[in-house]
Design a protein around this nucleic acid. Structure first.
Lengths: 142, 142
DNA sequence: GAGTGAATGCAACACGGTTGCGGTGAAATT
DNA sequence: AATTTCACCGCAACCGTGTTGCATTCACTC
C-alpha cells in the first residue's frame, strides 16, 4: 500500500501533517467515518474543527475518498482499500442507527435507476439502516 | 379521495387546522416537500416553525406520510396518492441539486440489499441526484 | 534567507432541527 | 353551562453540522 504522502502528491495535494494524519485515520478505520468520528480520533493532537472539515472536503473533491450521507444528516467519509485499490464508493452502505457506525457493502453494485425524460443523474446512493450485529442482540456467536 | 380530517381521525390524530392544512399542502404538491417548501406555502397564514416541524414528524410517525433525506441534509415529506392510495414510499427518489425539488420514482422497486450476518435492516433508501428537466437545459421540448 | 501563496486557526455565522415551558382552546365531565 | 383537562401551539433558547471571512503561520521557491 502506498503511504499517505505519496497518495497526496500523486493528486497534486500538498502533503501536510494534517492531511496525512486524516488519511491514516480513514484508511485505518476500514469503514466510513463521520467528521465527528474522525475528530474524536485526534485525541492527543487536537485538530481545529474547520481544518478538519476542509481537509475531508478536499480529499473527497480530489477523489481520494468518497462520502455517504447518513440518515442522521451527517456525511461519512471512506478511504478504505479494496483488493489493494482505493474503495470506489459505488456500492450500498449500511448505517447502524444505534451506534452510528457505517459499513460498505462492496460485494453489491448500485442498481440502475430509471429517471424521467430530461433528468440528468450525477450520482446516486443506496443506504440501508437498522442495527449492526453489536447492537441488535442477535450476534452470530451469542 | 378522503379528506384530510377523515385521514387524521382514522389514525387517532386530533384533526386540527394546522394538521389538515399541512396534509392539504402535501397531497396537493404530488411530490416530497421539505420543511422549507412547506413553510413557504403558508404565505397568508404564517405558521410557527416549531409547530410545522412537529406536525411533519407526527404525520410521519403515524404513517400518513413518508420521509426521504436529501443530499442537502434536509428531510422531504411525501403524502401524494398512487392509484387512490397513499404513496407507500418504498421506491427510489430523484433530487434536483439545482432547484431542490424531489420526485418519487414509483414505477421502480427498491433492490434487496445483502447485509452482513447479524445486521437487522429497518429501512433503506435509494436516492439519485442531478438535474431535473427544468434545470438541465435539455428539456424534451426545447 | 526573503518572498509568496497555500494551509491553518479563530470567531462568527448559517441552517436544519430540537427542547422546555407556558398559554390557549377544544373536548370531556359534571 | 361551567369546570376540568390535556393536547396542541407558540415563543425563546439551544444544539449539531457545516461554512465564511480574515488574520496568521508555515512550507516551498527563488
Amino acid at each position: 500500500m502506498k503511504n499517505p504522502e505519496d497518495l497526496l502528491r500523486e493528486r497534486g495535494i500538498r502533503p501536510t501533517e494534517l492531511r496525512k494524519e486524516v488519511l491514516r485515520i480513514l484508511f485505518g478505520a476500514g469503514r466510513p467515518l463521520s467528521w465527528k468520528d474522525t475528530f474524536t480520533r485526534f485525541t492527543e493532537k487536537r485538530v481545529n474543527k474547520v481544518s478538519l472539515y476542509r481537509t475531508l472536503s478536499l480529499l473527497e473533491e480530489k477523489g481520494l475518498v468518497h462520502k455517504i450521507l447518513g440518515t442522521d444528516g451527517a456525511w461519512h467519509y471512506c478511504a478504505h482499500l479494496v483488493e489493494g485499490k482505493k474503495c470506489p464508493g459505488n456500492h450500498p452502505h449500511f448505517l447502524c442507527l444505534a451506534c452510528g457506525r457505517m459499513f460498505c457493502l462492496e460485494d453489491q453494485p448500485l442498481p440502475t435507476v430509471q429517471v424521467p425524460e430530461g433528468c440528468v443523474v450525477e450520482g446516486k446512493q443506496l443506504l440501508a439502516y437498522g442495527r449492526c450485529p453489536s447492537c441488535s442482540g442477535t450476534q452470530p456467536q451469542g
